[in-house]
Design a protein around this nucleic acid. Sequence first.
DNA 1: TATGAATGAGCTTTCATTCAT
DNA 2: CATGAATGAAAGCTCATTCAT
Lengths: 214, 214, 214, 214
Amino acid sequence: MIKSQFLKPRTRDADRSQQAILVAAREEFAKHGLGGARMDRIAERVKLNKRLIYYYFASKDDLFLAVLERSYADIREAEKQLHLTDLLPAQAIRRLTEFTWNYYLQHPEFISLLNTANLHQADHLLRSERIREMNSPLIQTLGEILERGRLDGTLRGGIDPLQLYVSIAGLAYFYLSNNHTLSAIFGRDLMSHEALGERLTHMCDLILGYVLIN
Amino acid sequence: MIKSQFLKPRTRDADRSQQAILVAAREEFAKHGLGGARMDRIAERVKLNKRLIYYYFASKDDLFLAVLERSYADIREAEKQLHLTDLLPAQAIRRLTEFTWNYYLQHPEFISLLNTANLHQADHLLRSERIREMNSPLIQTLGEILERGRLDGTLRGGIDPLQLYVSIAGLAYFYLSNNHTLSAIFGRDLMSHEALGERLTHMCDLILGYVLIN
Amino acid sequence: MIKSQFLKPRTRDADRSQQAILVAAREEFAKHGLGGARMDRIAERVKLNKRLIYYYFASKDDLFLAVLERSYADIREAEKQLHLTDLLPAQAIRRLTEFTWNYYLQHPEFISLLNTANLHQADHLLRSERIREMNSPLIQTLGEILERGRLDGTLRGGIDPLQLYVSIAGLAYFYLSNNHTLSAIFGRDLMSHEALGERLTHMCDLILGYVLIN
Amino acid sequence: MIKSQFLKPRTRDADRSQQAILVAAREEFAKHGLGGARMDRIAERVKLNKRLIYYYFASKDDLFLAVLERSYADIREAEKQLHLTDLLPAQAIRRLTEFTWNYYLQHPEFISLLNTANLHQADHLLRSERIREMNSPLIQTLGEILERGRLDGTLRGGIDPLQLYVSIAGLAYFYLSNNHTLSAIFGRDLMSHEALGERLTHMCDLILGYVLIN
DNA sequence: TATGAATGAGCTTTCATTCAT
DNA sequence: CATGAATGAAAGCTCATTCAT
C-alpha cells in the first residue's frame, strides 16, 4: 500500500502540511540518520502536531521511505532537464559528470540519505516500486549515448553504462561524503572553492580519458 | 602472569574482555548504525555484563570511537603489508587498486562504519588524535610512487596523490556501499562473482588508463 | 468545558494530572530525600504513566523544584490567613509562634523538604524566582508589628524581624525535625500530646519573654 | 554486631586506612546525603580500593552509621572540654550557647549529617547503642547547672534541661542549616562576619533573658 | 592488606506510537 | 484537519556489591 504517491493529497492545506513534513523529515533524517532521527523533532520543526505525521505517513519507516522516494524523484527530475540526447556523446558524458558533481555538492542531504538507506540495506527500497521505476531511464539514456559515440567513432566501445554511471557517481560521492573525515585526517580543506574545482577537473580527466578514443 | 589459554578461564582477563567487546561492538554498529546500535545486544553478544562495557569504554559514543580507531588501524596495517615501494610504479598503482577493492569487499563492516562516521560528520574523528596520525603515510607513499613513475617515464606527471587515492577508494566504495540500492533499482545482481570481476576490471581500466602514459 | 467530576473520567485532564503528580512527588521526596526518591514509585502512586511525569516536569530535579515551590506557596498562603495586622502586637507574635509550631507539626513533609533543599545548598532555590518573591512579605509584616509594639510601649525596641522569625522557626523546626534522634537518645517520647504541649509553652515563654517589656 | 567500635582496629596501616575512609565518607555523606552519596567517590577520595571499604564497614548504611557515631563522639568530646560544672550557672549557660553556635558554625558537615539522619528517621540511631550512651551526660550536667542556679537564686526554677538544650541547638541549627535558603530569599548575606556576630548576640539575649531572674 | 574485574538489579530518561476530542 | 494527553517498551547508564587473586 506504499506504492501509491508519497503524499495523501486532499485539500491545499493538507498538501502544504504534508510537504512541510517531508521537508522537515528530510533534514532530520539527513542530520541524524534513521535511528537517530526523532519524530518529536520533526514535529517541532514543522510546528505541527506529531499525531498528524502519523496520520499522513503511518510510521517512521514509512516516512523515511517517502522522504527517500521524494529525493530520488527530485534528482531524476533534474537529470531529465539535462537533455543529454541533444548533445554530442562526449559532451553528454562531460555534462553528466559535471551535473552529478554539482548536484551532490548542492544537496548534501541527498548523500546523507543515501548513506542511511545503504546502512539499512535497501530494506526500504525493496518495499517501494516507485524508486525502481525512476532509475532505469538514465542508464538507458547513457547506453544510447555510448552507442552513438561508438558509432561516430568518438567513444570506445564495450563500455557498460551501469559501470560508468556508478563510477561517475562514486568519484563525486566518496569525496563529498567523506570530506570531514578526509579533511580531518589530511589536514587539507577539501571544501574550499579551489579544492572543489580541482576535484571536478580530476573527475572529468578520469572519466573522459576513459571513454574518449585517444 | 602466564596467560595460557588452557590454564586461564575465560574471565578475569581485562584485555581479552576489551577486545571481545570491541569485536561485538563493531558488528553491532556496522549492522545498525550509531543510533540503531544497542548496548544490550553488544553485551549479549560478548556474553559479558553490560556494566563492564561502561567500565572500559565509558559511553556509547566512546565505544564507537574505539571501534572506529581499531578499524582504521586494521586497514592501515594491511596497507603496510603491500610493500608498494618494492614494485614498479604502474604495478604499485594496480596493486593498491586491487587491494582497496578486495579489502572493502571482504570487510563490509568497514564500509558501514565509515558511512556512520560520515553521517555524524567526523565528530568522532575530531576527538581522536590516533586516527589522524594513522593516515598520512599512505598518501606519502603514493606520492613517491607517482614521482618515481614520472621520472622513469611510465606515469604522467601532475597527479595529486590524494585525488588519486580518493578516486580509487570512491570507485570501490560506492559500488559496494550502494550495492543493495543499485541491485534493487537495476534488477541486476551486482554481487555475483562475475559482476564483481567486471567491476574490478573496470576500475583498473579507469585508473591505469588515467595514470599511464599513452 | 464543564469539568464536572461526574461526567469527566479521571484521565485526560492535564491540570488534575499535574496536581496529582505534585502531591505524590511531595510524599516521595519527603520520605526519601532527593537521591532516595524514585520516579517509579511516584508514577505508581499517581497511577499515571511515568513518561507523563517527564512530559510535564522534564526531570527529577525540576519536579523537586516544583514541589518545593508549591510547598512554599502553601505555607505563605496559610500565613496570610493569620491577619496578624489585625491583632495587638504581643498577640500577633504569640499567634505567629503558635501558627509556626502547628504548621510544622501538621506538615512534617514540609520540614523534610526543607531539609532536603538545604542539603542541596539552595541549588534549586537559586533557579526559582517564584520562591524568592514569596517570602519577603512576612518579614515586612513582622517588622511592622514590632514597630507598632515599640510605639505603644508593649514591646522592646531594636529587634530584627528576620532574627526573630528565624528563632521562632528554629525553635519549632529543630524539635520536630530531630524528634526521632532526640527521642532515641534521651529515651523520652517527644511526640506525646503532653510533650508537644510543653514544647509550645516553652517556645512562647522564650519568645514572648524576649519581646515583651518587663 | 555494629555496637562494637566504629573501627576494626588491627595494625597501624589498617587503622590509618579506616580513619581515612571515615573522613572521606563524612565529606561525601555531608555533601550528597545518604541516597546521593557514591561509594565510588568515597573510594576515589581516599585513593583506596572500593573493596576495602566493604571489608572494613560492610555496607553503605553501616558506613554512614560509623560516620554518624564518630561525629557524635566528636561533639560530645568537645562539650566535655567545656568544664561547665566549674562555672557559675549563668556563665555556664552562656558558654554552652556560644559553644553550640561555634561548633555548628565550624562543622557544617555535622549539620548536614544530622539532616540526613533525621530524614531517614533515626533508623540508624536505633541500631546503635553507642550514640544513646553518648548523650545523656550533657542533659544531666545541664540539669545540675539549672538546679544550682535555682538554689543560688540566679536562675528561674522549673526549666526542663532538655527543652533548654533543644532550644539552644535549634536557634543555632536552623539559622545555619537554612542559611542558603534564607540568604536567597531575603537577599541578605547571613554568613558575613557581622551577621554571624549579630546572630550569636540575639541567641544569648533570648536564652539568658529566659533563664535569668529579672 | 589490598586490588582490578565483574555483576544483577534498577535508575532516570527516551521514543515511537495511540487515545480522546 | 488538527491536537494535547497518555502509554508500554526499552534505551543508556548507574550503583552497591561481590569475585578471584
